[in-house]
Computed example of a mutant assay.
Amino acid sequence: MDMKLEVVVVPVADVDRAKNFYEDLGWRLDADVARGKDFRVVQVTPPGSPCSVIFGTGLSSAAPGSAEGLHLIVTDIEAAQAELADRGVEVSEVFHDAGGVFHRAGTEGRVPGPDAERTSYGSFASFNDPDGNGWVLQEVTTRLPGR
């Protein structure tokens, strides 16, 4: 049976601030529905993604800004990093991991610049939303078998 990830909940403190931030990234606004003052759901979708992000009021007991390691896959890490910077996002420089496999939590093991061989899955950049939820751009040019 196929199981497809279609929605990720991101905990935020200020729904309108988050909505503006994600729309400013160029993400499509899919829904903004309120049912009274205690429940609101906003759904946005990154360009080209089959998975959406929702946030709002009454959706999660997680602390605002506690999501980390949310990955956005791009085909050109340098172009994606530059586009975010042009949109006013405080985005890290492009980096790769000292171990050469996958980035670590936080900034430990980051080596400036893309992977020297531009190995697929090997180059990254990161940014946070206004609440501190952590996003990672990852360059993927050739998928692993079975993907």
Rank of each mutant, 00 (worst) to 15 (best):
R147L: 11
D32M: 04
D30Q: 12
V101T: 15
L5N: 01
V10G: 09
G99Q: 08
D131V: 02
T107P: 03
V136M: 13
W27F: 15
I54E: 00
R28E: 15
R87W: 11
F127K: 06
T57Q: 01
P46A: 15
V8G: 05
V8L: 11
H71M: 11
S49E: 03
C51D: 01
L84S: 12
L70E: 03
A67K: 03
H103R: 14
R143A: 14
Y22D: 10
L29A: 10
D24T: 07
H96R: 00
V8P: 01
L70I: 13
A82T: 08
S126L: 09
L59E: 07
D24M: 04
L59I: 15
V140L: 01
Y121L: 02
T75P: 08
L84N: 09
E108C: 01
H96T: 05
P64Q: 07
T142Y: 02
A62K: 11
D97F: 01
P11W: 04
G113N: 07
H103F: 13
G99R: 09
G109A: 11
H96K: 00
F39V: 06
P145G: 03
G134V: 05
L137N: 06
K4Q: 04
N20P: 00
H103D: 14
G69Q: 01
M3H: 09
D38I: 02
S60I: 10
I77F: 05
V140S: 05
N133M: 06
E68M: 09
Q81P: 09
P46V: 15
S120G: 09
F124E: 06
A98Y: 03
D38A: 04
R40T: 04
S126K: 14
R147E: 14
T45D: 00
A79E: 08
F127M: 10
S120A: 07
V9W: 02
V74N: 10
V74C: 14
P130V: 12
G56W: 09
P64S: 09
S92M: 07
R28C: 05
S49Q: 04
V42L: 15
K4I: 07
T57D: 00
E23N: 01
L84H: 10
Y121G: 03
R87M: 11
P47M: 05
D131L: 01
D24E: 11
I73P: 00
A82G: 02
D30E: 14
E139T: 06
I54C: 08
E93W: 03
A116M: 02
V41I: 14
P114M: 11
T141Q: 01
A85G: 14
E108S: 07
N133D: 06
L137W: 09
R110Y: 10
A125E: 07
Y121W: 06
V53R: 00
L144N: 00
E93I: 03
G48V: 12
I77K: 01
V41N: 00
G113V: 11
A34S: 12
R147G: 09
S120Y: 06
G132K: 01
F127C: 14
H103Y: 11
T57E: 00
R143I: 04
V10L: 14
V111A: 05
A62V: 07
T141K: 02
R40W: 06
P112V: 05
G99D: 11
A98R: 07
P47W: 04
T119G: 13
D86I: 12
R147S: 13
E90R: 12
D16C: 06
L5A: 10
M1F: 03
G146F: 00
Y22F: 15
G65Y: 05
R118L: 08
F124L: 05
V136G: 04
G48C: 12
